[in-house]
Design a protein around this nucleic acid. Structure first.
Lengths: 131, 131
DNA sequence: ACGCATTAAATGCTTGTGCATTGAATGCAT
DNA sequence: ATGCATTCAATGCACAAGCATTTAATGCGT
């Protein structure tokens, strides 16, 4: 692969990412008052309910898949808690850790926003060359 | 393309983008004291020198290709000017517009940083499935 | 049991970003 | 020429992100 090919691949990737994030941000914000990262975290929590015994997650476990720093994630969860979408609770076995659990309101909001996300992603990614 | 495929494509794209940007940011910062967006703007200026008669660019022209808002770009250029890498000058024919030109220092810094960028991009993008 | 390095998460601080607004210059219609 | 909508770039403001630090809890070695 030549440098020129690498570069154009990178620009393509970058442009595509920017376009999708921008659309997602606008749509999720306007329709559901959710940021992209906020949605992503709710999404992970929903996804993972089946995996985890009780639907509880260490903050750390959420970090995987959400491309944010530890501090950003901490504050993001604080925002979600303030909005009533998640609860934070101490975990008994390791009292440094914090469990994050979805509330009903969080589940509802996520299920409302999910079709919006799917629609935007489909519009950008379905049936395209690199799709 | 199924929703599940769309979703996994998106996660792949997102993860890859995050990894590359993170690496680029660190390498460019550590080695050349440049942010990714700063480098990108210098890169556009260098690229475009051959295209433009005198190597002058309207701020607006730079916006294409750099995925930033108008205000972010304005401040970014202000930072580059403060660092001595570009000059801003009024353009005579439309005095609302601003011409941005590379300085020698800007050209030097860009040429120093270019191999670093190439190396990081190659490491991530060369010889990979979705390359 | 005690000290010490380590880990989890929160927080202070600085910086970059976007939105909305502003200020200035332009162009067009009347 | 005058008024008015439009465009370019800069700026006020609010907010989210990362880095470094802090606080608290763990675990390990002696």
């Amino acid at each position: 692969m030549t440098d020129h090919e690498v570069l154009s691949t990178w620009r393509e990737l970058s442009a595509r990412h920017a376009a999708i994030v921008s659309d997602l941000e606008r749509e999720l914000q306007e329709r559901h008052e959710l940021g992209v990262s906020e949605f992503e975290v709710l999404d992970r929590l929903v996804d993972g309910v089946c995996l985890s015994a009780d639907g509880k997650f260490r903050v750390q476990e959420l970090a995987a898949g959400v491309h944010l720093s530890q501090s950003a994630l901490s504050r993001l969860i604080a925002r979600l808690e303030k909005a009533g979408f998640v609860l934070r609770s101490m975990c008994a076995d390791d009292r440094r850790g914090v469990f994050v659990t979805l509330t009903d309101a969080g589940r509802v909001r996520h299920s409302e926003a999910l079709p919006t996300q799917r629609r935007v992603l489909r519009a950008h990614l379905a049936a395209t060359p690199q799709g």
